[in-house]
Amino acid sequence: MSEHNTHIEEHRDDEASKLGMWLFIFTELLLFGGLFLVYSIFRLQYPANFHESSLELSVTIGVINTIALLFSSMTIAFAVTAVQKKNNKLALRMIGITLLMALVFLVNKYFEWGHKFEHGLYPGSDLMQLLERGHHLYFSLYFFMTGLHALHIIVGMILLIIVYFKVKNGSIHHEKYVFMENGALYWHLVDLIWIFLFPLLYLIS
């Protein structure tokens, strides 16, 4: 034991970091919650229009995207467990799979949206102006909600890429991984929102 004990206590409060992340998640939940509320009120007002419009969406693409997101949610939880168990190699692989699933989701969304754009169906298009009010509202909400959700996917991917490199260079390890936990929390939030978006937009008719 040296007499010059220069052990530096790191100032860190993982509980507080997580609490902060959760507070942010609350604002996100209420943001999407508000949109769900708008959706349900207009659905009550225009049930027939909403029913017809929802038939335009491809359930198959919706199901593939749901599976991709659920699976990616598990792989990122796997990655956190792997880091806790000092298995960084597995963690990196799991983050990689998560990012791949996110990409699958976005490519699917690209084709889904692209198909609608080809038919002249996009916010502000001439066709949209001609639609009945209920159809117009449905597709406006569809584009806004899935668009905002896709934006969250992109932000989540950026976060997870940062996590990937932090795990790789060793700044995230089994004793210090709160940044990774918070990134994973964000990713689960994206999954959580989709759990409600998918049945409401694609299935219920």
Partner: peptide
């Protein structure tokens, strides 16, 4: 470092 933090097993997930 993370006092009492819980590890969720792979098979639970």
């Amino acid at each position: 470092a993370n006092n009492g933090s819980h590890i969720t097993e792979y098979r639970v997930l």
